Amino acid sequence: MSIPRVPRTALVTAALSLGLLALGGCDSGADDGPGAAQGSSVIAPGRPGEPNRTLSPEEAARHRKEDDSPNAADVSYVRMMIEHHEQALEMARLAPDRAKSKQVKGLASRIADVQGAEIDMMEGWLDEHGAGKDAGGHEHRTMRGMATPEQMEELEAADGAGFDGLFLELMIAHHEGAIAMASDVKANGNNLRAEEMADDVIATQTTEIARMEDMRG
């Protein structure tokens, strides 16, 4: 099916019309201050006795980070992720004696090293902000990707190739849950360091999921 050609005169007329609209928009905002005509700019209220300021998107982002005190989402995420990581360590520690595949053993060792270090980092963050680890713990259903007690018992009883397959299945789901939790805190948290820790979880575990999928294949 051929596409009808638009006459050149019509294109020129449309371009001129858009140009006039743009100029009109700039003129109408001339008294509003620099950058007021930019749709992506942000008005920041001034201090008492001072006028409002128009910020670029980059300046607005910096402005929002001036006070990055942890909020409830940040604290809840770090507390839950510590417990989430601890289960991953339990699973990883089973691999040396039960796994058949050297690849699975190597992956489990890496998970133990990385997530163990992340637990230390997160506990330090909680101490720094006076939050402390939640001694009461969290129910499994509140944390995505957590293996049930029955699944953990099944993994502990497995051996050889059966262990390898179940380990990969449970760990992929576990990683997917951690990534979802990290994405949540990036959307709802306020603390820059908590966001950076979430970014690390997303980057590391996304890579490991791809590796585990290859092993299953």
Rank of each mutant, 00 (worst) to 15 (best):
M1D: 09
R5S: 05
P7T: 05
L11E: 12
T13C: 04
T13W: 13
L16Q: 07
G19P: 00
L23Q: 01
D32P: 06
G33D: 06
G35H: 12
Q38E: 11
Q38F: 14
S41G: 06
S41K: 01
V42L: 02
A44G: 07
A44L: 15
P45M: 14
G46I: 13
P48N: 14
G49N: 15
R53E: 10
S56E: 08
A60D: 04
A61D: 10
A61H: 01
A61Q: 04
H63W: 08
K65G: 04
D67Y: 02
S69W: 06
N71E: 13
A72S: 13
S76A: 12
Y77N: 03
V78D: 01
E83D: 11
H84D: 10
E86W: 03
E86G: 11
Q87D: 10
E90I: 08
A92M: 06
P96H: 08
A99P: 04
Q103K: 13
Q103C: 00
Q103M: 11
V104G: 01
K105C: 03
L107F: 14
S109N: 08
G116C: 12
G116D: 00
M122A: 07
M122F: 02
E123P: 05
D127Y: 01
E128W: 02
E128R: 13
K133A: 10
K133N: 05
H140S: 11
T148Y: 15
E150G: 09
Q151K: 12
E154G: 14
L155F: 09
A157W: 06
A157F: 09
A157H: 10
A158T: 01
A158L: 05
A161Q: 08
F163L: 05
D164Q: 07
E169D: 15
E169Y: 12
I172E: 02
A173N: 08
H174F: 03
A180M: 08
S183V: 07
D184P: 00
V185A: 09
A194D: 08
E195I: 00
E195W: 05
D199T: 04
A203H: 05
Q205L: 04
T206K: 02
E208V: 03
A210L: 13
R216F: 03
G217M: 03
G217F: 05
